[in-house]
Design a protein around this nucleic acid. Structure first.
Length: 419
RNA sequence: GGAGGGCUCGCAUAGCGGCCGAGUGCACCGGUCUUGAAAACCGGCAAACGAAAGUUUCGUGGGUUCAAAUCCCACGCCCUCCGCCA
């Protein structure tokens, strides 16, 4: 939710932002109109209520005829108050629904355009040239006894898989490495609930455009999270955080569930796009003035991880049209995937400024009053895609895979052998 | 799944349908006293919106009433006991 005051003061900036995202800019006028209507109704109600309060007090002390006369007045007034209150509630609802449709205001530095209009910020490392035919992760996964997509499909349907043997060990190593480096960087490790209630889902903005990708358990009205961003953001819902504690950083490890509706035919082979995977997610609550710097820090931690995995990658500044509604800017890291001859997204970090915190009612207090915090999130490691990148980039001609140095201590070996 | 108890300002508690936005204790902040501290005493101290007047908030939502923390209904959460269970 954006700040209505900013919208009132500078509606053109919001219009421009909506337009650059490829979203409806006429909502801005709807929001302004419904906000005006809301405020009029509110003050009408408040005036009547004030009258009623005074009158009620008079009733309490009055006696006899005077009392019955006052009561008569009070009864008619009560009707008016109720009417005004109903109107107020209706208009507030409309105003809220309207403002909720607006996306976060873009960072002016974010590249404008559609998905393909991203800007490459940098390349790190050089894609390796193979003097043999590189195998893809599905084939390597079989040779190593690491990934079993066939049995995954048998038991759980398409986009499902088993990690077995060295694949399972690799997940544990990645998670251990990720968590220990996050802790070293000052993050509090968290294992959050993955089954959350509607308010958490709603507050983080996943019931908007992203709703069709969310699993909903109707019988109990709970949702399976697509990322631990949801429970981490909602962790401090309705709280006022001490300003001197900011930034507060959490590293959440959880399973993530995605319906992947509308992606039929995309990435059907292997484990690039799956319904369930584990992920270590960074989440930060910080002072709004610090948000941009914090965003850079999150990006740096993501780069450090890729560096440690010894994988070539590039960093892109995601274009306005491809940003989530909560983000005002987003950087993706794309790892080189040899058999696809392409860079593919493995991690992503978004600056949500105060947008998410305003919905979730997460604030901090300083000398000037109580204000919304800024929230930011970033992937430290999404297991399946990192496994793909590691297997494919570090493979040998015989199908064995060299283990990056950073993970060797966690695996007790330098190489994954054939089974 | 069954049976009970509870949810009030950071914590603990009081609260008769109007005198309750709400008392008390602890904590906290400021002051007096003191060489300094403690104790004692004095004062302050929930939040949101608003320029202000004022409005709203006693788990949440509805209802009764001129008037609800207080009465009624539903839901949520917490605790205890029984059953089942990783």
């Amino acid at each position: 939710m954006i700040d209505i005051k900013i919208l009132r003061e500078n509606p053109d900036a919001v219009r421009a932002s909506q337009k650059n995202r490829g979203e409806d800019e006429t909502i801005v006028d709807k929001v302004l109109a419904s906000d005006d209507a809301r405020r009029v109704a509110l003050s009408e109600f408040e005036t009547l209520r004030a009258e009623q309060n005074t009158l009620s007090k008079a009733v309490a002390t009055a006696k006899g005829d005077e009392k019955s006369a006052l009561l008569e007045n009070a009864k008619t007034l009560a009707g008016k108050v109720k009417e005004a209150d109903t109107k107020r509630a209706e208009l507030e609802e409309i105003a809220k629904n309207n403002i909720m449709q607006l996306s976060n205001i873009l960072d002016p530095s974010a590249p404008i355009g559609k998905e393909e209009d991203f800007v490459v910020i940098e390349h790190v490392g050089t894609p390796r040239t193979f003097d043999f035919e590189a195998k893809d992760h599905v084939e390597l996964g079989k040779l190593l006894g690491a990934i079993d997509t066939e049995r995954g499909a048998k038991v759980a349907g398409s986009r499902s898989y088993y990690l077995t043997g060295s694949g399972a060990m690799l997940e544990f190593a990645l998670v251990n490495y990720a968590i220990s480096s996050a802790v070293q960087a000052g993050f509090t490790p968290v294992i959050p609930p993955v089954l959350v209630n509607p308010s958490a889902m709603e507050g983080t903005g996943f019931l908007g455009q992203a709703a069709e990708n969310v699993y909903h358990l109707e019988k109990d009205d709970v949702y399976l999270v697509g990322t631990s961003e949801v429970p981490l953001a909602a962790f401090h819902m309705d709280e006022v955080l001490p300003v001197e504690k900011l930034p507060i950083r959490y590293a959440g490890y959880s399973s993530c569930f995605r319906r992947e509706a509308g992606t039929y035919g995309k990435d059907t082979r292997g484990i690039i796009r799956v319904h369930q995977f584990d992920k270590v997610e960074m989440f930060s609550f910080c002072h709004p003035d610090q948000a941009q710097e914090e965003h850079k820090r999150l990006l740096q931690w993501e780069k450090d991880f890729l560096d440690a995995m010894e994988i070539p990658y590039r960093v892109i500044d995601v274009a306005s049209g491809d940003l989530g509604s909560s983000a005002n800017r987003k950087f993706d890291i794309e790892a080189w995937i040899p058999t696809q001859n392409a860079y593919r997204e493995v991690t992503s970090t978004s600056n949500c400024t105060e947008f998410q915190a305003r919905r979730l009612n997460i604030r901090f207090k300083d000398a000037d009053g109580t204000k919304s915090v800024a929230t930011l999130n970033g992937t430290l490691v999404a297991i399946p895609r990192m496994i793909v990148a590691i297997l494919e980039n570090h493979q040998n001609a015989d199908g064995t895979v060299n283990i990056p140095k950073a993970l060797q201590a966690f695996l007790g070996t330098e190489r994954f052998e054939l089974v």
